[in-house]
């Protein structure tokens, strides 16, 4: 019993731990960076500075507060995103923009470092979790950045794995095999790729205008699902009947054939017996619409114990 409790406790711990993990910051991605902001997006102060866009690739809101942004791997805790600011909560599949202007007093989204605009040098940017040790995402911006051209993920929030998977599965994918690309039209605080149509639906309109492809595919899946269920329960049914036959043979001492007959008896027979017992003796439990025959056992309980009952009045002294 004690072992069972320990096992249950461990299971519950894992469930809660996994649940907590699912909401964590590991879904954040450095999505787009503009190093040389010459004639582009301006901040609340009307100034042009390099900016870094962070994207929440998860389907839930993620708080970037208490995470760290840095341009120096040796100093991962260079800029801590302030805690307690409602604006640090990033909605699902949405962005926030940080200004690399070395002016942290300007607000939550102004970093205490800037990016090197020397076109011969690379820039490194990393996002660390609130422990300052767990690297969430990083990118090295190659040298030779041009003014007002950003460097961003080919699709919002994508990883190398996702790109490779897409290239493997979708031969129609036309955006090349590079995860990071240059954007002449920068998209600060917006999707890198603006979706003006539903690709899936367009695909169906183009390739399956009469719906036969969908019908064949979907009906095949429906049949496969139910055929698998059929096969599994056909097997389970056989096992259950075997067990039932063995039980009958053991209890009644009948032959295998007789036991098979009894084991495959219709449920209607038992229902009729149960109904008859119910109608004559009303022996059933409290469950609605279900007739169950159970042994009546009177278990000991202090609530029903006569020992604890107040049988005599307290004596008056």
């Amino acid at each position: 019993m004690r072992n069972l409790k320990v096992i249950s406790g461990i299971c519950l711990f894992f469930i809660f731990f996994a649940g907590a993990q699912a909401q964590r910051t590991s879904f954040l991605r450095i999505n787009e960076v503009l190093v040389i902001n010459q004639d582009n997006y301006v901040d609340d102060y009307g100034k042009k500075h390099p900016w870094i866009e962070i994207y929440n690739s998860s389907p839930a809101t993620v708080d970037i507060g208490a995470c760290f942004l840095t341009n120096d791997l040796r100093n991962p805790k260079k800029y801590m995103v302030p805690k307690g600011d409602v604006l640090t909560k990033i909605s699902p599949r949405q962005h926030v923009l940080f200004w690399a202007d070395n002016n942290p007093t300007y607000g939550t989204f102004h970093l205490n470092f800037t990016l090197d605009q020397d076109s011969t040098k690379t820039n490194f940017i990393a996002l660390f979790d609130s422990d300052g040790r767990t690297l969430i995402d990083s990118v090295t911006i190659p040298a030779g950045q041009k003014a007002d051209i950003s460097y961003g993920l080919v699709e919002d929030g994508w990883t190398q794995q996702k790109l490779e998977e897409t290239l493997r599965l979708n031969s129609l994918y036309k955006k090349g095999d590079k995860l990071w690309v240059y954007y002449e039209k920068v998209t600060p605080s917006a999707n890198n790729v603006i979706l003006d149509s539903n690709e899936k639906i367009e695909n169906f309109k183009l390739n399956d205008a009469d719906g036969l492809g969908m019908t064949l595919t979907a009906m095949s899946v429906v049949f496969v699902a139910l055929i698998l269920l059929y096969l599994i329960f056909k097997y389970i049914g056989k096992v259950a009947m075997d067990l039932s036959r063995k039980r009958v043979m053991k209890v009644s001492g009948v032959t295998k054939e007789q036991a098979s007959e009894l084991a495959s008896e219709s449920g209607a027979l038992y229902a009729a017996i149960a109904m008859a017992i119910y109608e004559t003796t009303e022996a059933h439990d409290a469950e609605n619409m279900v007739l169950t025959i159970k042994n009546v056992a009177r278990n000991y309980s202090p609530w029903s114990s006569k020992i604890y009952s107040l049988r005599t009045l307290p004596k008056k002294n």
Binding site: D208, G211, T215, M219, F223, A225, Y230, K234
Partner: peptide, 28 residues
């Protein structure tokens, strides 16, 4: 359990209507 397949077959109604809806000009 073989009756499951009957439940599967009846789903042709869904996809029959899907085909007809496309024919009548609805988006997929």
């Amino acid at each position: 359990p073989k009756l499951m397949l009957v439940g599967a077959a009846a789903q042709f109604g869904i996809f029959g209507a899907y085909v007809l809806s496309l024919f009548w000009g609805f988006e997929p």
